[in-house]
Design a protein around this nucleic acid. Structure first.
Length: 572
RNA sequence: CGGGGUGUGGCUCAGCCUGGUAGAGCGCUUGCUUUGGGAGCAAGAUGUCGGAGGUUCAAAUCCUCUCACCCCGACCA
């Protein structure tokens, strides 16, 4: 392709809309343009990258025995009502009515559709296992679209769905997908970590995510991993061995009420009373569906809403507002405590049960209680792990390694769905013994557009993007420093033709621009190899090959340029 | 949804506080010079100042409403 024949609108300045490097670069380098919040146009360079990624995904999925199909983007509401997800998905699910006032859903995932489709088709165990996938636009009305393609509302995704006769067979199918995923991301040049994750709105038994670790907060997931074994999990899911706390054996002192005028925060109170935040019981009121509950957590720790939500089996969980808190506890926010709370469920974190002589709110304005003791002074309906793991805690698997946290970009996920959808939608088959059974299902996603941006986030420098050769829009850019110089021009064209003949994706910068502009653009759009033809080198019968990643330059005679490039590309 | 912020030429922004008929840099067009890391000179084109209403002799500027976008939070296959 000649540069003059492909639309690459590079920008000199960072776009105002972007916050993180990969987003800035994709816009600056002419890969994407925003249409609306979280909705993007993919320009020619981007489309080439997306095609490369989808081809890799396609190959690996096909190799794993999955078959490509294409399903509708618009779904009738009835499917989602039948599975029970009409209520669960919430506002993230884009909904609309057609001209006849029928409710429709813009598909953010396709469990309902595929299960309903196969329900009428697969009748015998002989037809299983089956794995179908598609690569398609998805729409999710994200509360807060952010970071360009990393959290867009409209995005490209590969979603696969497996159907098996039983758990045993399913395990094989699931493992095949895990292997395929590893290969996909390896081929894309991305190091991924497979972590245990929450099943969220997908439901099912268990789930994994494939995460690209990044050092900036641009990764929207936080993952914990063990430094001595392979355990890793998202913050929503991670657990640790309960750490022993030092005052475990303190003698219980008599309960006290102290005046704490206007002291509401953990820091204010613990400073005032001169105790560690570890000794404070935070009492958080939540609205779980239509019921108010209290969650108790140590002052220095964070509540994990996902764990809490899963524990009590709530569909919706949100913090109670200030008015509700006052109504329930009889005191302002900041003075809540478990003692004296009536008619509501109290759930305490495991760590709370171990505290001796703790501090809590008195459920009375400007007062706290000290030397509060679990069992003696208050009880809990449930005691469970409902907190976030903290860096440095001990691994629950090997029981000796330390857990450390890092940011990550989730590029793929896999869900063990069990029979959740096949049962709710009545998708059954006849087994060997003639019994009707629901399919055992799995679902598997890869964010195509997100993977592309994850690669940019991972591979860039102050000049621009540095694509791995496997997913770059072009492998080589030929840069004649002076397009009006006939000798340079004909040599450049000659090398270009030869590379094209060998099927190398090559971009020829035939613009009448100054060399500096061409070099900067080439660096910005991230092409792995640049072949530069300038008058001085050409007089010495040389062209220059520069490796984008290392800035290393190699001089070779023009006749050897093609073979040298091919050789270099092997390792990029 | 709560809090904060921004909308001015294709892009990045100044001007707004203190009202007086719209600017810079980049980009774009033409010409000449220049040609290995975002060139120089000269000449030019481009804006209903997000939208609606109001105050005023006069509104980019003040007021009200509204829309869009960005950031923080809540949320997240």
């Amino acid at each position: 392709m000649k540069w003059s024949e492909i639309y690459i609108p590079t920008l000199r300045e960072d776009p105002a809309e972007a916050e993180i490097d990969s987003h800035k670069l994709l816009v600056r380098a002419g890969y994407i343009r925003k249409l609306a919040a979280g909705i993007y146009n993919y320009l020619p360079l981007m489309q080439r990258v997306l095609l490369k990624i989808t081809n890799i995904v396609r190959e690996e999925m096909n190799n794993a025995g999955a078959q490509e199909i294409l399903m509708p983007v618009l779904h009738p509401a009835e499917l989602w009502q039948a599975s029970g997800r009409w209520e669960i998905m919430g506002k993230e699910q884009m909904r609309m009515k057609d001209r006849n006032q029928r409710d429709l859903v813009l598909g953010g995932t396709h469990e309902e559709v595929i299960t309903t489709f196969l329900k009428g088709e697969i009748r015998s165990y002989r037809q299983l296992p089956l794995n179908l996938y598609q690569i398609q636009v998805k729409f999710r009305d994200e509360i807060r679209p952010r970071f360009g393609l990393l959290r867009a509302r409209e995005f490209y995704m590969k979603d696969a769905y497996s159907f098996d006769t039983d758990e045993e067979s399913f395990k094989i199918s699931y493992q095949k997908m895990l292997n395929a995923y590893k290969r996909v991301f390896d081929r894309c040049g991305l190091d991924t970590k497979m972590v245990e994750s929450d099943t969220g709105a997908m439901g099912g038994k268990a789930a994994h995510e494939f995460i690209v670790l990044v050092d900036t907060a641009s990764g929207e997931s936080v993952v914990f991993s063990c430094d001595s074994c392979s355990y890793a999990a998202t913050v929503e899911k991670a657990i640790s061995l309960e750490e022993k706390i030092s005052d475990d054996h303190e003698k219980e002192k008599p309960l006290n009420k102290v005046s704490t005028p206007n002291l509401k925060t953990v820091v204010e109170i613990t400073n005032f009373l001169n105790v560690s935040p570890k000794k404070l019981v935070k009492t958080l009121l939540y609205k779980a569906d239509n019921q108010i509950i209290a969650a108790l957590i140590r002052g220095d720790q964070e509540l994990n809403e996902v764990k809490l939500k899963n524990l009590i089996g709530a569909k919706n969980l949100e913090m109670a507002d200030a008015a509700t808190v006052e109504k329930i506890t009889g005191a302002k926010v900041g003075f809540s405590g478990p003692i004296g709370l009536k008619n509501l469920k109290i759930i305490a974190d495991l760590q709370i049960a171990k505290l001796k002589n703790a501090v809590t709110g008195a459920n009375e304005n400007d007062f706290h209680l000290t030397d509060v003791n679990f069992k003696r002074d208050f009880k809990a309906d449930q005691i469970a792990d409902i907190r976030n793991v903290v860096s440095g805690e001990t691994c629950p698997h090997c029981k000796k390694g330390k857990l450390t946290s890092s940011y990550g970009i989730e590029v793929g996920n896999t869900f063990m769905l069990g029979t959740k959808y096949s049962e709710s939608l009545g998708a059954k088959f006849l087994d060997r013994d003639g019994n009707e059974k629901p399919f055992v299902m799995g679902s598997y996603g890869i964010g195509i557009t997100r993977t592309a941006q994850a690669a940019v986030e991972k591979f860039n420098d102050d000049k621009g993007i540095i694509w791995p050769n496997v997913i770059t829009p072009f492998s080589i850019v030929i840069t004649p420093t002076d397009w009006n110089n006939d000798k340079i021009k004909s040599k450049a064209l000659e090398i270009y033709e030869h590379l094209i003949e060998r099927n190398v994706a090559t971009l020829l910068d035939d613009r009448d621009e100054r060399p500096g502009v061409k070099f900067n653009d080439a660096d910005l759009i991230g092409i792995p190899l640049r072949v530069t033809l300038g008058p001085k080198n050409l007089e010495k019968n040389q062209v220059e090959i520069q490796i984008r990643k290392t800035k290393e330059t190699i001089h070779v005679p023009p006749a050897e340029a093609v073979s040298k490039c091919l050789q270099l590309l092997e390792n990029l």
